[in-house]
Each structure stands twice: as C-alpha cells, then as structure tokens.
Design a protein around this nucleic acid. Structure first.
Length: 168
DNA sequence: CCCTAGCGGTGCT
DNA sequence: AGCACCGCTAGGG
C-alpha cells in the first residue's frame, strides 16, 4: 500500500487495550491494534486538533467499542480509503456491508464485487485493510468455514468472531 | 490429510 | 516488462 501519513494519531482506550486511530483531512484513515509490549507511549502527532477531528474521533471511539462488544455500531466517521487502489477500495466497501455475526468467504466477496476469479486478490486486499474491526475483515473466512488469515494476528480474528457467536 | 494447477492484484526490479 | 509473493479454491490422490 502506498505510504500516506495522517494528520493526527489519537489513542482509543478500550477494554482490549489502546488502539491508535489515524485521521487525515478527509476522515479516519487508519486503525492500529494495541501494541503488545508498549508502555503508555502514545503521542499525539498533530499540532492543532480541529473540532472536526475531535468529533470524528468520538464517533469512531463509540463505534469501535460497539464492534468490540459485538454490537451493531452506530454511525462511523468519514473513512478516508484513498490510500488504496480501486480494487482494494471495492473490497473494503464490500466488507462494510457484512453485518455483525455474519461471514463471507473470500470467494463470496470476490463475487460480490463482480470479480469472481479474483479470490486470492481479495485476500490480499483484506490484508491491506487500513481500518480493521470497523471495516470487518475478520468476517471473511476461507472456503469450508476455515479461518483463513489475519494480518492483525489470528488470535484477534478468533476473538472477534467468537464474540459475534461465529463458530469455526 | 497432502499436493497441484490455476487464479489475479500488488510491489519490487 | 518480468517476477515473486499471497489472508484462495477446486479437484485429485
């Protein structure tokens, strides 16, 4: 994925640890899982945090807490997916339509975006998802109900699925 | 279970 | 332009 630096990076405290949310001028552009072995080393990189970003951040925080608790999230802030290729954006937008508690296979996602044979590439796009959890790439499984992969670590994928009562 | 062939996007040379 | 990676899949031992 192309490098794209956010204008601000803000911590999100959750029962699962401190996520990092990245914002550009256009909206939320990244979400990072809590660092395993990091101390309280979050720094805010922005010089002046606008009221707009503050509002996006509170919206994003609420939504993240919802998904982590397997509740249907309310509104999301604007998402800035412009760092992705057209194909990746198509995949990410398709993922957004998978409801809490449901899953798609990589092949089904491929069909959903009209590229039935681009199955493997869908896997690649999922792995490049800049906003995991809110863009629920964890709800994409391999064929036959196998878990498939997860760039944030399979433990996270299993945890999120289990909370949504999705068995494997 | 394993192996193989086929598949398509992406990033690096 | 070429090539090696992949969060894949279906088919065949």
């Amino acid at each position: 994925m192309k490098p794209k630096s956010p204008n601000s990076v803000l911590p999100v405290s959750t029962p699962d640890g401190i996520f990092l949310a990245c914002y550009s001028k256009k909206g939320l552009c990244g979400l990072g899982f809590p660092k395993k072995s990091s101390g309280p080393v979050q720094r805010t990189l922005d010089y002046e945090m606008s009221a707009t970003v503050r509002q996006w951040h509170s919206t994003a925080t609420a939504a993240l807490l919802d998904v982590l608790a397997a509740r249907k999230p309310g509104a999301l802030p604007p998402l800035d997916l412009s760092a992705g290729t057209v194909f990746q954006q198509q995949v990410w937008n398709a993922l957004r339509r998978i409801p809490v508690g449901q899953t798609f296979s990589y092949g089904e996602v491929a069909k959903a975006i009209g590229r039935p044979k681009a199955v493997r590439a869908v896997g690649g796009a999922c792995g490049a998802n800049p906003i995991p959890v809110l863009i629920p790439c964890h709800r994409v499984l391999a064929a036959g109900g196998k878990i498939g992969g997860f760039s944030g670590g399979l433990d996270w994928k299993r945890t999120l699925l289990a909370r949504e009562n999705i068995g494997l």
